[in-house]
């Protein structure tokens, strides 16, 4: 266990105790919701964790870094960003995946681009976004988000 884990758990515990003192019924509802969403996300977590194991075990770092590493260039980054935009996996689970990619030779730029497009852009939810907010706003938001994600990724690569 590292300090981040301890911090997260203590923080949540304090929130929970505070909530419990304020309103028991509401806290109970929150906990039921938490248990439900926990069991809903567990299968996806297991799948990603197995895939991470296989990825690190079978795909050599040199291959990963060729596609998404330092030498992949702008093309590689855009490719990863596109993947992030299309994929529909919970952001929570994308972080261990991103960490494993980093460990096995992916560049910071590629990983940052992947996470940012994954969270900011929703291809699956785009029809709903268009319906609620109109074509103009929805397409502008998703399109510009893609460009922003690439810019953020390259700035991060330059700094870190």
């Amino acid at each position: 266990m590292n300090s981040t884990t301890i911090f997260i758990n203590i923080f949540t515990m304090s929130c929970l105790i505070f909530a419990f003192i304020k309103d028991r019924a509401k806290t109970k509802r929150s906990l039921i919701l938490a248990v439900k969403s926990f069991f809903r996300i567990i299968p996806t977590v297991l799948i990603i964790i197995i895939l991470i194991g296989l990825l690190l075990g079978f795909v050599p770092s040199s291959e990963i870094s060729k596609i998404v590493g330092e030498q992949s260039g702008v093309g590689g980054v855009i490719l990863v960003a596109l993947f992030g935009a299309i994929l529909h996996i919970p952001a929570l689970i994308s972080f261990p995946l991103a960490a494993s990619l980093l460990k096995s030779g992916a560049s910071i730029v590629a990983v940052a681009a992947f996470i940012t497009t994954l969270t900011m852009i929703g291809t699956v939810t785009l029809p709903l976004e268009i319906k609620e907010l109109g074509k103009k706003i929805a397409l502008l938001r998703n399109g510009i988000s893609f460009i922003i994600a690439i810019i953020i990724a390259f700035i991060m690569g330059a700094i870190l």
Binding site: M1, T5, F11, A19, T27, S30, L31, L33
Partner: peptide, 18 residues
């Protein structure tokens, strides 16, 4: 993952209700 996931879910549950 298993060390943080329950905490994260509880936090999300609390905010969703409150």
């Amino acid at each position: 993952m298993i060390w943080i996931l329950p905490a994260v879910m509880v936090l999300m549950g609390l905010f969703a209700v409150w």
